[in-house]
């Protein structure tokens, strides 16, 4: 283990600007953002009826996610509203995963510290992206109907209707299911972020470990693992965006269903009241 490569989960600090530590993954995520902005302007300026390669790719990505959103919502207006968020997530994660593939990027070394590193191999970034999804899906649900949202998770409504022992057991089961729902909601953040981070970081570690095994495995042996990294980077970006799409759409549609049910419940109660009145 004496010539083991230096691997750390936390990104290396390059310097300080006004007391804020600038790490190598932060620097690369800024570079990714700049590349993304430049690409967007390029596509926008070069927009033509006969599409070039990049325009074709952009159109393909937009159509793919638009169709996915249409499947999830079945509503054009809403699909268009969430399209930018989902495509933004996809493009940013995709470019961050492939950032170290750019030639010479990994050879830039300052004081023995790599200046660039794949931004998604830093856990904070993936947690942040997962939190964005979490907040968007939950805030939309809250803004639709705060009362129903709370009722979805804290199910003490059944406890008030208890008539016999069997009902009591059912009510406690309901409360337990509500607690499980809360845990499941939090687990989404962990699973989304850990999946992306684990895949990208493990790909990098694998390449580094194989390159440092011996002098003979430095040059051509890591190549298949780079290819694997390319593929898994694309798939992880796709999975992250599709899963966050389904979380947001699922929350939205389930809230809608709950609202509908509550409305129906109210109407039925009103009808029963009317019937009781007409009988008397």
């Amino acid at each position: 283990m004496e010539n083991a490569p230096h691997i750390s989960i936390a990104p290396e600090v390059l310097g300080n600007i006004a007391g804020v530590a600038i790490t190598n993954s932060f620097l690369s995520s800024i570079c990714v953002s700049l590349i993304l902005i430049a690409l967007i302007f390029y596509v926008r300026v070069k927009l033509s009826i006969v599409p070039g390669t990049i325009q074709l790719a952009a159109e393909g990505i937009i159509t793919f996610f638009y169709n996915q959103l249409l499947d999830a919502y079945g509503d054009e207006k809403r699909a268009k509203r969430f399209l930018p968020l989902i495509i933004g997530l996809f493009l940013f994660i995709f470019l961050s995963n492939q950032f170290t593939i750019i030639p010479l990027v990994q050879s830039v070394v300052l004081d023995g510290v790599d200046v660039f590193r794949a931004p998604t191999s830093h856990f904070s970034l993936t947690v942040t992206l997962a939190l964005i999804t979490f907040l968007v899906s939950n805030l939309i649900a809250i803004s639709m109907s705060p009362w129903l949202y709370v009722k979805n998770f804290i199910k003490i409504g059944e406890l008030l209707k208890v008539r016999c022992a069997g009902d009591l057991a059912k009510a406690f089961l309901d409360i337990f299911l509500g607690v499980l729902d809360i845990i499941g909601e939090l687990a989404k953040v962990i699973s989304l972020s850990a999946r992306l981070f684990g895949n990208i970081f493990a790909g990098e570690v694998m390449v580094v470990v194989i390159a440092s095994l011996s002098a003979y495995t430095q040059f051509f042996v890591p190549a298949p693992f780079y290819a694997l990294g390319l593929l898994s980077g694309l798939i992880q970006a796709l999975v992250f965006s599709v899963l966050s799409l389904s979380f947001i759409a699922g929350m939205h549609t389930s809230m809608e269903a709950a609202k509908e049910e509550a409305k129906k419940h109210k109407e039925e109660a009103g009808k029963r009241k009317l019937a009781a009145k007409s009988i008397s």
Binding site: A194, R195, A202, L243
Partner: peptide, 25 residues
Amino acid sequence: MLVAMAITESTGIYSLVIALILLFV
């Protein structure tokens, strides 16, 4: 299939993250 595979994979990724934490942190 790719999405389903990624979800199936997530428990493996959890153990990977824990193994990495054990090794390096």
